[in-house]
Simulated assay, not measured.
Amino acid sequence: MGSFVRERVIAAPVERVFALSLDVGVHVDSMTAHDERIAGGVRSGRMAEGDIVTWDARHFGIRFRMTSLVFDVDAPHAFSDRQIRGPFAEFRHRHTFEPAPGGTLMRDEIVFRSPFGPLGRLVDAVIMRRHLIRLIDERNDVLAAQAVAS
């Protein structure tokens, strides 16, 4: 099973960063390089406890669909999402937010596992971890820019 943590201080209040992190429009804006769009579920605004959204995007030249469930929402401190249908054998993402000098410390904890046993573990180690880190960083670049501009 692969995992990683990304942390970033964003020059905006915790409440703003938390709200933008749950906004499906911000997510779509952050994934334009991957032609990501909403294919089902919540289509606009901020997601809440129990909401489901299906994302459709292109990665590695292939179209993927992933349906995620938002849970454990503790505004404005934390929330989680996990894949309930899609390309991974497992995908969980914990988001936490806390006041920090200069704004908000945003922390992303990702746990993932590709299918296909030993082959999936090899893909995770060689390709997927690096790809997912890049995606989270791209998302967080856009989120930070929007939080500061708001």
Rank of each mutant, 00 (worst) to 15 (best):
D35C: 15
L69V: 10
E90A: 09
A57V: 10
G117P: 03
V70K: 03
A125G: 15
I127M: 13
R94M: 02
R58F: 14
R113K: 11
F64E: 12
F60R: 15
M66V: 11
P115V: 06
R37F: 15
R58I: 15
I38W: 05
G41K: 05
M128Q: 04
F79I: 00
V24Y: 00
R43D: 05
A33V: 14
S80M: 03
D23E: 10
I136W: 12
I127E: 10
V28P: 04
G102H: 12
H131N: 11
S44N: 03
G40Y: 09
E98C: 14
A125F: 13
S80C: 04
F88P: 00
A39R: 05
R130A: 11
M128V: 12
D72I: 09
H34G: 15
V126D: 07
F60T: 13
V123G: 08
H77M: 05
G86C: 08
D124H: 02
I127N: 10
I62T: 12
D35S: 15
S44F: 04
V126M: 10
M128H: 00
L69T: 07
R37K: 15
S30A: 15
I52H: 14
L122M: 12
M66T: 09
I38N: 03
P99D: 12
G50P: 00
F97Q: 06
V28H: 05
S44A: 08
S114C: 09
V24R: 00
V126T: 09
V73A: 01
I127T: 13
D23L: 00
S30G: 10
R92Q: 09
G103N: 07
R65K: 08
